[in-house]
Design a protein around this nucleic acid. Structure first.
Lengths: 121, 121
DNA sequence: TTTAATGCAAATACTTTGCAGGAAA
DNA sequence: TTTCCTGCAAAGTATTTGCATTAAA
């Protein structure tokens, strides 16, 4: 059942290792790749099964797939123009693992995003 | 624009202060309350606006509304049983404002959630 | 009367599934 | 052939919106 389509994985990588199924699909379309949305979903599910990527949820509920092991980072998003900057987690990482340990949690991940209005907006 | 329907708030309270819109609706139906799904959604949105409840996401993407004390905090959520612990942001707060300032962002907010498997799961 | 609340129905958006055609083994 | 991969179309689920009706002020 190895549906881990390499083209999908590759696209997710080039998207910064952090994108929704819809985004991966649209990106592949834009680049002229011939692929169906269904296949993208199935490939991403398979990658999750194989623990090659993990799943987070955006604020609007859309699932975002993140490469495990890829450079872990966070986002600074402009509410006005949607402009996004990749940023380092810095102290957030230690905070997350510390809190999790305190409460006996394991297999731990976290999300942290900052949003505001950029200089232009 | 006070759509904070008290029946909806009351039902959310009786549901343990932790339920999805669909669950609140079904609960009210079961108890013979006459209400529409739309009204439940709008009431919950309004409660979020008024910062009387906050919104999390279940693993399947469904929004869950949760009564909160009003103080700014973050969440530690179990992927297994959905159990949630309110936690302090600690260093995250400074990190967020610092990064935002660095990039010239203003009117800034942030989200930060930790998820994993709790001791029981 | 003027304003706001309500809820049905339709629209949206994301995601999954049924199924048939095609590629690979 | 047999098994897996694809992707269209349809179904499913959560959520939002248009609009006409009703209740409240």
């Amino acid at each position: 059942m190895s549906r881990s389509n390499p083209r999908v994985l590759n696209t997710l990588e080039r998207a910064g290792g952090f994108a929704s199924a819809q985004e991966v699909y649209r990106l592949m379309q834009r680049e002229g790749e011939s692929i169906g949305l269904t296949t993208v979903y199935r490939a991403l599910q398979s990658l999750v099964n194989d623990k090659i990527v993990d799943v987070l949820r955006r604020d609007d509920g859309e699932a975002i797939y993140r490469l495990c092991g890829g450079a872990h980072h966070h986002h600074l998003v402009c509410k006005g123009c949607g402009d996004t900057v990749e940023i380092e987690g810095g102290s957030v990482e230690k905070w997350a693992t510390g809190i999790a340990q305190e409460h006996g949690f394991r297999d731990v991940g976290h999300t942290a995003e900052i949003f505001g209005l950029c200089a232009k907006c």
